[in-house]
């Protein structure tokens, strides 16, 4: 067993545990930051975990007339996110499954998770479920070009879309982080992440008005352990996306060799980076209002332009 495989396996396991355990805390942190900035006391960053524990213990309830899709969707979504959490370079640069740790695969896997929830939303047969699914998939479709072209921009330098390769190339050549291409790509990816994780200004995760909901509308019918899985899954998605953003552009601290210390540094660095990004995102949200659904394409068109410029810049300006 080679060194990098060991590192990958250990790191992958560690990453998965860190993200599962930490994701609700990240959500708690973001809520807390928001609450404090809005002048509220807040429920504390452990509140999401307390909610999850309560919901996991409840009786599972399925609405009448729904199919297996409804029941399987939360599992599928969490499982997919878990896979991504395990294979992407968060704590270690090596991956347990190099054949999966491809940026295209990761983005597509996360989209598959979204699709599972969207199908569940339709499966309920309620107007809100359908509406949420329709909006969610629309946004997903429009985000896709930005995401892939941004990946293109990132991969030009590394000559590969393999996540470890991209991270390695950034580590090898730190100045590239400040290149125009990388900055433009980062900006584009931020918008992608905002849209994919359902944050303001694309979607308001805290809304209680069904007609403005996107993500929440799809999951209205979930309760008990199913809802817990959904909540956990969403939190993990946020963590994964933020982690990807952090490590693709600022990979320092990531463990490149097997060793307790290196892994510990990797975990800490990851937690800090994601925490800072999450806090920043939450802070920014305070000053934003949700845009109308039909203004979202404009936002995404802007991010697409950034991504395209990033590709061109990576070739022309480098």
């Amino acid at each position: 067993m080679t060194d990098s495989t060991t590192l990958g396996l250990v790191g992958g396991l560690l990453q998965a545990v860190v993200i599962v355990a930490g994701a609700p805390l990240l959500v708690g942190l973001m809520r807390q930051v928001r609450a404090r900035m809005e002048g509220r006391v807040g429920a504390g960053i452990r509140q999401p975990w307390r909610d999850l524990r309560k919901q996991f213990r409840k009786e599972p309830i399925t609405p009448r007339g729904t199919s297996e899709v409804f029941r399987a969707a939360p599992v599928a979504m969490v499982a997919i996110t878990l896979v991504v959490a395990a294979i992407a370079p968060f704590v270690t640069a090596a991956s347990p499954l190099p054949g999966v740790a491809d940026l295209f695969v990761v983005v597509a896997l996360l989209a598959t998770g979204t699709v599972a929830i969207a199908l569940a939303g339709i499966d309920t047969g309620t107007a809100f479920g359908g509406m949420g699914a329709s909006r969610e998939t629309t946004i997903l479709a429009l985000v896709e070009p930005t995401a892939l072209v941004a990946i293109f921009a990132l991969s030009v330098r590394a000559g590969s879309t393999n996540l470890s390769a991209i991270v390695d190339s950034t580590l090898a050549e730190p100045s590239a982080v400040l290149s125009p291409a990388a900055l433009l790509a980062a900006a584009a990816l931020v918008l992608v992440i905002v849209a994919e994780t359902g944050r303001l200004p694309v979607d308001n995760p805290a809304t209680h008005l069904e007609l403005t909901m996107v993500h929440e509308a799809m999951v209205l019918e979930y309760a008990g352990p199913d809802l817990a899985l959904i909540e956990l899954g969403s939190a993990m998605r946020s963590a994964v996306y933020l982690g990807l953003l952090a490590n693709l552009f600022v990979p320092w601290g990531i463990a490149t060799e097997a060793g307790v210390l290196a892994l510990l540094v990797g975990v800490v660095a990851f937690v800090v980076k994601v925490g800072v990004l999450g806090a920043a995102l939450a802070a920014a949200e305070v000053f934003l209002a949700k845009v109308r659904l039909f203004r979202v394409p404009e936002l995404l068109a802007g991010s697409f332009l950034l991504a395209l410029l990033a590709v061109t810049a990576s070739y022309v300006l480098a």
Binding site: P60, P63, T124
Partner: peptide, 10 residues
């Protein structure tokens, strides 16, 4: 715990 069916929220 056993799964139970319930009415949709209407």
């Amino acid at each position: 715990r056993a799964r139970r069916e319930a009415r949709l929220w209407d």
